[in-house]
């Protein structure tokens, strides 16, 4: 631990994690092998698995969950959590829908869409900002703050929509959810750009470094000159902005907005982060490992779908997978300790 320069290697808060942190990428290699194993099993079970159709179904379903997981990732690395992500995405979708409807509904022009998208991102950033401000300046636990923000946003959305659907959008937003560009689905491209931005931000910028430091030890970070309050506010604001992108994609994909849509994603995003090796206490975790974990989850669910099982079995398997991976990490941590003696 003497050369601890890259953020994930800076701290040995928990012995169990050191085994992985000592070798950057060990986590990613493990997850890559797991992904290959899942793909191999499904290819053997179903001849239709290794086809373009499967790739398409994965590529179109991954982005919503992926973008929301990115929104969850930063707060968790900082030692917090943002339970308001799904309803923030809903509220942002509502904002976009409202602007489109105010400008002619299905006849709305591209300018109305751009305005709506900008406002949606503003609303997402704003709600994240409020969450961040309360967390940073009152010292209340992020679970409680983001939970009450979630209850508030859910209530606000239900109040505004009376629990109903809003639809009737112009046709040109459809490609955002269903179209393809240079052979790749547009939502997947958006996810890839978002992942790239998040990866660079977390591994190459001051903000990313400060996020890891705050997650490791917020007091030490403060004493070493990091403006922890400002960084916390920024983290939750960025998380909210990412929710807005997810909300916009959801509008385009379903051609409607309903509050509560994607609600079940909330705990799945946390599961994906933990599966991707993010430390639940904060301080450690890599964007690319989490993306690998996401792909594993989606391949598992699409593969089971192909075999005729329903989404609920996939949900149960996701839970079992997380338990299995955590047990394996415990075993390897144990082995690491024995080897060192």
């Amino acid at each position: 631990m003497t050369d601890g320069l890259s953020p994930p290697m800076m701290n040995g808060k928990r012995a169990g994690w050191r085994a992985f942190d000592a070798k950057p990428g060990a986590e990613a290699i493990g997850l890559g092998l797991a992904l290959l194993a899942v793909i191999a099993v499904f290819s053997l079970l179903s001849p239709r698995f290794l086809t373009l159709a499967t790739f398409d179904s994965i590529a179109f379903q991954l982005p919503e969950l992926g973008l929301l997981t990115l929104a969850m990732l930063m707060p968790i690395i900082s030692g917090g959590i943002n339970l308001a992500i799904t309803f923030t995405a809903n509220i942002c979708g509502l904002t976009l829908a409202w602007v489109l409807h105010a400008n002619g509904g299905s006849d709305a022009g591209i300018l109305a869409f751009l305005l709506g998208a900008i406002l949606a991102i503003g609303v997402g950033t704003g709600s994240g900002l409020v969450t961040g401000l309360v967390i940073a300046y009152t010292g209340a636990h992020p679970i409680l703050v983001s939970l009450s923000m979630m209850i508030f946003l859910r209530g606000l959305g239900e109040f505004l929509t009376r629990g109903g659907d809003i639809s009737g959008f112009p046709d040109f937003i459809q490609p955002l959810g269903h179209g393809s560009l240079i052979g790749l689905p547009v939502p997947l491209l958006i996810l890839m750009v978002a992942v790239a931005i998040w990866h660079v931000m977390m591994s190459r910028t001051r903000l990313g470094f400060s996020t890891y430091m705050i997650g490791s030890n917020i007091e030490a970070a403060r004493y070493s000159g990091i403006n922890t309050k400002k960084v916390l506010v920024l983290i939750y604001a960025l998380s909210g902005a990412m929710c807005a992108i997810a909300g916009i994609i959801m509008v385009a994909r379903f051609n409607s907005v309903r509050v509560g849509h994607g609600e079940s994603y909330l705990l799945i995003t946390v599961l994906a982060c933990f599966l991707g090796g993010v430390n639940p206490f904060g301080g450690f975790g890599r964007v690319l490992s989490v993306v690998l974990a996401l792909i594993i989850l989606q391949v598992l669910s699409s593969g089971l779908n192909l075999l005729g099982a329903n989404q609920h079995l996939a949900t149960a398997l996701w839970g079992l997978l997380l338990v299995g991976v955590m047990i394996l990490r415990w075993v390897s941590g144990r082995l690491g300790l024995i080897m060192r003696r």
């Binding site: 609920h312 949900t315 149960a316 996701w318 839970g319 338990v323 955590m326």
Partner: peptide
Amino acid sequence: VVTIATFNIFFG
């Protein structure tokens, strides 16, 4: 971590 996993296992 455990209870988020068991949440999904129980519900699924």
